[in-house]
């Protein structure tokens, strides 16, 4: 295959195709290994904690600021038209459908993706992954399957958490300029939101999580020897998974428009 690539494609495209091929093989191996015992439950729970609990602060603050700023931006635009009552609906649709998942996905790509890439890259460089391999402990199952599973399940929860905090941030901003009660604010939000808003927005977050775990693990696990490669693994994990989050989002919007 590589001879074929050498003949027909320039170096940059060759590298991109090799990376895509590698990611596809990695994905295939993940789905083969995840159902095979023994299951690394203890490590999986540790990863849930590392990925989920340790990201709550950053994701919460970001979510709050998103909601707060969105409301602050909307108020001067809608208030002159007497449309302040529409702000909860506008904020909720914007946050739940688009801004919450994408911004939180990008934050997670930066924090979690780079962390996984750097950790596994460092383990590769210091031969810890080889040491697991030669002692007949499947490092892919222990290191990769647990991390991808944890990101796939935890990042959607983090996004739901960030969305909730963002809606609260929106209310706080709104309460500065209006006397709308919190119960009215949330009843307007729930009146506005439909399953067509919530379901596609939630489903795509599983893809965000899977991609962030997959890319970080792949970049770290396949890092070259040398300390420089740890930095490269962390950096490319962020770049590729951020790009993938945006591509997934674009596909999800297109698909949602077609289906609903």
């Amino acid at each position: 295959m590589f001879n074929f690539l050498n003949t027909y494609f320039p170096k940059g495209i060759q590298n991109a195709l090799i990376q895509i091929w590698g990611l596809a093989e990695f994905t295939e191996r993940y789905f083969k290994e995840i159902f095979k015992p023994p299951y690394e439950i203890k490590e999986l729970i540790r990863q849930f904690f590392q990925i989920g609990n340790k990201s709550l602060g950053l994701v919460g603050v970001t979510g709050f600021i998103i909601g707060f700023v969105l409301a602050l931006q909307a108020i001067p635009t809608l208030q002159p038209f007497g449309a302040t009552a529409l702000i909860p609906a506008m904020i909720s649709i914007s946050i739940i459908r688009e801004i919450g998942p994408v911004i939180t996905g990008l934050i997670c790509a930066g924090k979690i993706g780079s962390g996984i890439g750097a950790e596994l890259g460092s383990m590769k460089v210091t031969e810890q992954i080889d040491a697991m391999e030669v002692s007949a402990c499947n490092p892919f199952k222990f290191l990769v399957v647990t991390r991808i599973t944890a990101t796939t399940l935890m990042i959607p929860l983090l996004i739901i958490y960030a969305d909730t905090i963002a809606l609260i941030g929106g209310y706080i901003a709104l309460s500065i300029v209006s006397d709308m009660s919190i119960s009215l604010y949330f009843s307007q939000i729930f009146d506005t939101l439909t399953f067509e808003d919530i379901i596609p927005a939630t489903v795509k977050t599983f893809f965000f999580g899977f991609t962030i775990g997959l890319v970080g693990s792949y970049k770290g696990y396949t890092a070259d020897r040398g300390t420089e490669s740890v930095g490269i693994a962390a950096n490319t994990s962020v770049v590729v998974s951020s790009l993938m989050v945006i591509i997934w989002d674009m596909l999800a919007v297109q698909l949602t428009n077609i289906l609903f």
Binding site: T126, E127, Q128, D130, A131, M132, E133, V134, S135, A136, N138
Partner: peptide, 19 residues
Amino acid sequence: LQYIRKKIGFVFQSAALYD
């Protein structure tokens, strides 16, 4: 290969400890 590796011990130059 994993089965046969259980019968082989490999001591790395760097020790390769799980840090």
